[in-house]
């Protein structure tokens, strides 16, 4: 039997899934911001159910536990958490984002990074440069089901953009990205319909204050013709 994994948040937080289904759902969670949010919220509710049945354990338990921990080696923090900074957060979000799209560069020119190894490496270098820049700043915005994360570096003038769960548009429409404020909106390129996960690098950050995404006629517009579906503040 097949399932829509989105239905499983309730059983999941109640630990009422079998092993296989639980693994499948946990595999799905990082790829679905809406599911992760809902799951986290429902999980907090189950905490009430636990608190409601609190019961004092036998006194001997404390001594046993304290003895046991004194001789138990602690597990190190998971990798990537030892250097808390915007860019580590950005990297993990990047890894989690589901539908990264294509790479492009502003200033009117769009470069598509194809799937060849050479281009993939070039893209990786660019992504890595932004993510590891000393002034990398991560911002995330959610609207309905879509999520966008922008890691920007003023010193490089570039940003890495990841999107998750953007809906596919009709052929006559395209997503377009913009640098917003304090000057009039400047195009940061168009976004193809969501495909395989791809990071996207945009240039032309300049002194923009926000980053936005609009829906435009295919091919893109000179200036936005509709209100942004998502905006994020830039660092």
């Amino acid at each position: 039997m097949t399932h829509d994994p989105h239905d499983l948040a309730g059983p999941y937080v109640l630990d009422a899934l079998g092993d296989t289904e639980r693994r499948r759902f946990e595999h799905h969670l990082p790829r679905c911001a809406a599911c992760a949010d809902e799951t986290a919220g429902l999980r907090e509710t189950t905490t009430w159910l636990a608190l409601a049945v609190a019961h004092r354990p036998p006194d001997r338990l404390r001594a046993r536990v304290m003895t046991e921990i004194a001789r138990t080696r602690q597990s190190p923090p998971p990798l990537g958490r030892r250097l808390p900074s915007p860019r580590t957060g950005g990297l993990s979000r990047l890894a989690a984002a589901a539908c990264l799209v294509l790479a492009l560069i502003g200033g009117g020119t769009t470069w598509h990074f194809h799937r060849s190894a050479e281009h993939a490496q070039a893209l990786n270098r660019r992504v890595t440069a932004v993510m590891t820049a000393p002034d990398a700043h991560t911002s995330t915005a959610r609207a309905q089901t879509a999520t966008i994360t922008v890691v920007s570096s003023r010193s490089l003038g570039e940003a890495v953009v990841t999107t998750a769960r953007l809906q596919r548009l009709p052929p006559a429409k395209t997503y377009q990205m913009w640098w917003l404020g304090p000057t009039p909106p400047r195009s940061a390129g168009t976004l193809n319909p969501p495909g395989r996960p791809r990071p996207l690098v945009t240039t032309g950050l300049g002194n923009a204050q926000r980053f936005g995404v609009t829906i435009e006629p295919a091919g893109g517009s000179q200036q936005p013709t509709s209100a942004p579906i998502l905006t994020v503040a830039l660092g």
Partner: peptide, 11 residues
Amino acid sequence: MSRPVYGLALR
């Protein structure tokens, strides 16, 4: 946490 943890396990 020992009370909620033990109580939940007991339940």
